[in-house]
Design a protein around this nucleic acid. Structure first.
Lengths: 371, 371
DNA sequence: ATGAAAGCGCTAACAC
DNA sequence: GTGTTAGCGCTTTCAT
């Protein structure tokens, strides 16, 4: 067993009370002489005592721990959110514990239980909770448990913080508009999920994709709304150009580029649902002797590291993940403090807030003014 | 305050002991009638009771938690190690908590203390500890605290688990040898750290790099040893070809490729210290109208996602990160169990073990037989 | 200025 | 079968 406060007390020949008082710097309140203080401190050093956080927690009613549930440890975005959350939490003396759910509903719920069993002071749920998980979260939230959903748009009455996908789509598209491009396409990726009304067979372009209300919360769909708004505002283009593909990854990007090359009126600017697709399209176009950005400008969304490692470094819209993590902790902290102050007797805020952080465009070499 | 075992006991009109026994499934030992069992279980449901892990820990002397200290949440390798560790730990009913040190020595030590304060049952230190941190770790280890260093080679008397960088270099090089290449170079990256004896001015190749014993533990240097061994075994090449560059990233790869293009006798195969460099070189070569793999074959090390997203998908040596994470937990678990059994009275193993997991080559399109 | 004692939530030894 | 009690390491009245 590790050395306890008792051992220190014995070693310093004082009571455990005195040790506790010294260690919690409550010396001022007319307690503990400088002499005993030093004696205790030296004993702490000598014995190598490290306080037991959880024994303390049991008295204090707080573990100074925030639980983060994330779908995947490998996602760039998740990493940054955790990074932001961790660094922000440390400032208030809190620590983060992370559970990876691997997109599994059961694991999500297991972690919620696990975290509650660990008496975390709050939970950040990163990503999209499953239906079942969402209802559990909702319940927690209604019971005033400090909770925030980060990086998802389907927060349904729970405090949420995320990037603004509408603005991402808008910024990316508007960048091309300002560069003077006249025909701008949006590669929306995965056909089966997105091309609902304006369904398109493999490898063809659809001119207009109806918004399916059921999927209206989907991030990518909202990015597409941003594209639509930018196109409308520009007045340069009467028709939207939405390219679907089998997948939403590197291969889907290649497929989309192939589709575009077959078009009679070829776009001079393309916005992609994500960076992987943009990279795939870039490589396909280069392989087909199309110059980027001279012939076609490309914009990705996500600003992942790979945007700097493509043959032509890619312009991309940055998702403010670190800031999302920071903001998530801020919200949690506010809730924790409100709970302490108001004793949970009063509804903190009446209604759940959903904050969306603005993205910012990172201009690299895959975009240029229209010739 | 959350609902406690007392509340459940009151609700079910039994003692806390009975509740505890039911909850820990110790019903068999002739205790608790099926009737009360059901009564308790139903009360647990009704009250929404979730046990307090740490109150239990205080009695059991175990928190069922392993602390992982990692330098960066964003590294691909780190993510995979955490993933492996997490999934393996769950099998034994343990949970992972992760601290990110951001390569800062103070943070490393703060997390060690924090984890000890949280009474974790073991610590996995991922990456290279700083000098100061290493001595603290050593101290912990000597005191029989379950500890393992993952992914680093400078373990200095502490149990360690990592990939085998010598084999990585060997496998990458030998792949080119088997393909019939006759002149194989190794791009070692950062000049200032590696080209010690055979120092090379910017943009020039050095024929032979002496091993600086001080840096002999460096991962990259050891990869280079693997290269050397493969070259020696092959008998095809009398001279090693080591290319240094300013940096070890994408740009360094471009610089290395430029160096190679200036050489009189151009290599027909190149091994890179990492994937980023390989990607940079690939793009530089393609830009200079050199064909890959027809003119030159390239091999990366790391098998990062970007290897699949380059214009020519890259052959690369896979680092078994997930397995490292799994193995790390296995070692920790063994130590924990040994400690319980032998009561810490006996030195577990006498000497620290350092396990190196074999990498495996992933063949893509950047390598081909010599023409 | 210091200590004794109670209690946070839980489990285990020991009654009954 | 079930309950009483002590104690894990800590903080906090309340005495002294």
């Amino acid at each position: 067993m590790a050395v306890s406060i008792k051992d220190v007390a014995r070693h310093a020949d004082v009571s455990t009370t005195t040790v506790s008082v010294v260690l919690n710097n409550r010396t001022k309140e007319g307690r503990v002489s400088e002499n005993t203080r030093q004696k205790v401190l030296s004993s702490v050093k000598k014995t190598g005592y490290i306080s037991n956080l959880y024994a303390r927690s049991m008295r204090k009613g707080s573990t100074f721990t925030i639980g983060v549930i994330a779908p995947s440890s490998m996602s760039y975005q998740t990493s940054l959110i955790v990074k932001g959350a961790s660094s922000e939490a440390v400032k208030s003396g809190y620590e983060i514990i992370v559970g990876i759910s691997f997109f599994d509903s059961d694991r999500e719920q297991a972690y919620i239980k696990n975290f509650l069993s660990r008496r975390v002071d709050g939970i950040i749920f990163s990503g999209h909770p499953s239906q079942a998980t969402a209802s559990i979260l909702k319940n927690l939230y209604n019971n005033k448990f400090p909770l925030v959903i980060a990086g998802s748009l389907v927060s349904d009455g729970i405090d949420a913080i995320s990037g603004d996908p509408e603005m991402s789509g808008y910024e990316a598209t508007n960048h091309l508009v300002r560069l003077g491009h006249k025909r701008i396409a949006f590669c929306i990726g995965n056909r089966s999920r997105f091309a609902v009304q304006g369904y398109s067979p493999a490898g063809t372009a659809v001119s207009h994709v109806e918004v399916d209300s059921e999927l209206a919360t989907d991030v990518c769909r909202i990015r597409y709304h941003g594209y639509q708004r930018a196109i409308e505002n520009s007045g340069i283009q009467t028709q939207e150009l939405c390219i679907a593909s089998e997948t939403s990854d590197y291969e889907g990007g290649r497929e989309s580029a192939a589709t575009i090359l077959k078009m009679k009126e070829r776009p001079d600017g393309i916005v992609f649902r994500n960076d992987e697709m943009a990279a795939g399209a870039l490589n396909f176009l280069l392989g087909a002797k199309i110059r980027v950005p001279e012939d076609i400008s490309l914009v990705g969304i996500g600003n992942k590291p790979l945007t700097e490692m493509t043959l032509v470094p890619m312009t991309s819209v940055n998702y403010p993940s670190v800031e999302v993590g920071i903001k998530a902790i801020e919200i949690i902290m506010k809730n924790i403090n409100d709970k302490k102050t108001k004793d949970g007797s009063e509804k903190i805020n009446g209604v759940a807030q959903s904050i969306r952080l603005a993205p910012n465009l990172i201009i690299r070499s895959s975009t240029a003014p229209r010739k």
